[in-house]
């Protein structure tokens, strides 16, 4: 009987796949790469990345890492741009609900595994949590040197002069280091690493983080990791120290300060509102009674969704 006949007979393809989609051999291969990555913090471990049922560049690395470490008792949170509701986060969460049937959550504190793209939650993570990043280009030196053969050599020799020259040239030309996201870091005093395209605002969070950080790049076939409580230093100069983004205003909805904000355009007359990028953090604060300066604005009900406990 052919595959097609079988599918026609059962009328479905669900249940035809292993727990969390990947077969156990593949998971084992990926877990080996993860363990190697943990043993050499910041080092990019090549792995035999599989074709996944979502396109390369849409989180296949993160999905393979999550699938390999996911257990039946885990509780998964899936975010993109800081939010649980962005389309691809919804899609990837649905993928694991379907293939693994695990519990999912939007609450940062409740999750045991958090898969993310472009943000780190505002709430501090714990030792019993794992943060999985989706990585498009794992090589921090790629835009300075396109050849893998060369960049691997540079990492091996700890030859990072090119990166410092780039940062210096930024300052010479623009008066600033002109990197605002995917800001390079040095891990455990050895490997220069791309923290994935999170805004540099999140860089301080990856230093000495209590949770294990796993980075998966599916298309580029690389995995790297930062073990808990590892020193991660953003590259800078003594006279031009590393700085994170600051915002003039607090979150319009919950009034939070010192968090990363998204700019939402309200009309074509320059109307703007800044709101928390971490939607769970914002909802949680509003549920606790924090009110931002624009919470009463009619636009707020469109943007922020409902605070927790106020019904979905």
């Amino acid at each position: 009987m052919t595959v097609m006949d079988q599918a026609l007979e059962t009328g479905t393809h669900d249940g035809a796949y292993n727990f969390a989609y990947l077969d156990e051999q593949t998971k084992r291969m990926i877990r080996r790469a993860i363990l190697k990555g943990i043993a050499i913090p910041g080092y990019q471990v090549p792995f035999a990345s599989r074709e996944m049922p979502m396109p390369y560049g849409w989180g296949t690395g993160g999905v393979q890492v999550t699938a390999s470490i996911l257990g039946q008792d885990d509780c998964l949170k899936m975010i993109d741009q800081g939010s649980d509701d962005t389309t691809n986060a919804v899609s990837l969460r649905g993928f694991f609900e379907k293939t693994a049937g695990v519990k999912t959550t939007t609450e940062t504190g409740e999750a045991t595994i958090i898969q993310t793209r472009h943000r780190i939650p505002e709430q501090d993570l714990r030792e019993d949590q794992i943060l999985v990043f989706q990585v498009p280009i794992p090589e921090p030196l790629r835009f300075l040197e396109p050849r893998e053969t060369e960049t691997r050599k540079m990492h091996a020799l700890e030859d990072y002069g090119l990166m410092h020259v780039k940062l210096y040239e930024d300052i010479a030309k623009n008066g600033h280091i002109a990197t605002t996201y995917a800001y390079p870091v040095k891990v455990n005093g050895r490997y220069v690493m791309d923290p994935s395209p999170t805004p540099k605002f999140d860089n301080p969070k990856i230093d000495q983080m209590a949770a294990l950080q796993l980075y998966g790049a599916g298309r580029e076939k690389r995995i790297y990791a930062i073990p808990p409580y590892t020193e991660v230093k953003s590259l800078d100069f003594e006279d031009y120290p590393f700085e994170v983004q600051t915002f003039d205003k607090p979150c319009g909805l919950c009034g939070a300060e010192n968090v990363y904000l998204d700019e939402v355009i309200l009309d074509d007359k320059g109307g703007r509102m800044f709101v928390c990028s971490d939607s769970d953090y914002c909802e949680d604060r509003r549920a606790k009674g924090h009110v931002g300066p624009m919470a009463a604005d009619p636009a707020a009900s469109q943007i922020g969704g409902s605070p927790k406990g106020a019904g979905e």
Partner: peptide
């Protein structure tokens, strides 16, 4: 996959550049 992933939201990084 990689060319078309540019259709995914990137507003967090864009915000960083905007600033």
């Amino acid at each position: 996959g990689f060319v078309e992933h540019l259709k995914l939201p990137h507003y967090v990084d864009f915000q960083a550049e905007l600033g």
